[in-house]
C-alpha cells in the first residue's frame, strides 16, 4: 500500500519567483493535491502561501526538493489555536467568523465543536470570544 501524507506549510516565494506557476508544477508533476488556505502574492514582491498538501510520501519528498530547488522557503505551520473548552458557555459567537469551519454549532445539542485539524489559525476567533477562551500558540 502506498503511504499518503498530509502537510500544512507556509511557502515564501522570493520576488523573482512569483511569476512561476509553482503550484501547477506541484499538482501536474508530483501528483500533490493542494488546498490553498491563505494567499498573499503580488507581482514583483515577495509572496506567502499557506497550503495544505496531500500526496504519496515519496512524491511529496520530491515535491519539497523541487520547491527548495526553486528557492522557495518552506516552513511548517507552527501557529495553532488553543481552546479552553472547559470554560466555554457555548454561545457560538466564534462560529460565524470561522471560515474554514473549525468552530461549528450545527449539532442539535447546541454545543460548540472545535475541530483543530480544520483550523488555519486566522485568529478571528480570539477577538470574537466574549470569554477570551482562544489563545495563539507558537509552539511546534
Amino acid at each position: 500500500m502506498v503511504k499518503r501524507v498530509k502537510k500544512r506549510l507556509v511557502l515564501r516565494f522570493p520576488a523573482d519567483r512569483v511569476n512561476e506557476p509553482i503550484t501547477y508544477v506541484l499538482i501536474k508533476d508530483y501528483d500533490v493535491s493542494i488546498n490553498i488556505l491563505n494567499a498573499d502574492i503580488t507581482h514583483g514582491k515577495e509572496g506567502n502561501l499557506l497550503i495544505e498538501m496531500r500526496g504519496e510520501a515519496a512524491k511529496m519528498d520530491e515535491a519539497l526538493e523541487y520547491l527548495k530547488d526553486r528557492k522557495v522557503h518552506i516552513s511548517p505551520v507552527v501557529k495553532t489555536i488553543l481552546f479552553n473548552e472547559k470554560d466555554c458557555i457555548h454561545c457560538g459567537a466564534c462560529a460565524s467568523v470561522c471560515f474554514p469551519g473549525a468552530l461549528t454549532m450545527k449539532n442539535s445539542n447546541r454545543k460548540l465543536k472545535f475541530s483543530p485539524d480544520r483550523c488555519v489559525a486566522c485568529e478571528l476567533c480570539i477577538k470574537a470570544c466574549p470569554l477570551q477562551l482562544f489563545e495563539l500558540n507558537f509552539g511546534a
Binding site: 457555548h90 457560538g92 467568523v97 454549532m105 447546541r110
Partner: peptide, 19 residues
C-alpha cells in the same frame, strides 16, 4: 447556521447560549 440574503449565503452566530 446560515441565512440566504440578497442571493448571498451568510454564516450566522448566536451571542446568547441556547445550550
Amino acid at each position: 447556521g446560515e441565512i440566504e440574503f440578497n442571493g448571498k449565503k451568510i454564516r450566522t452566530s448566536s451571542l446568547s447560549s441556547l445550550y
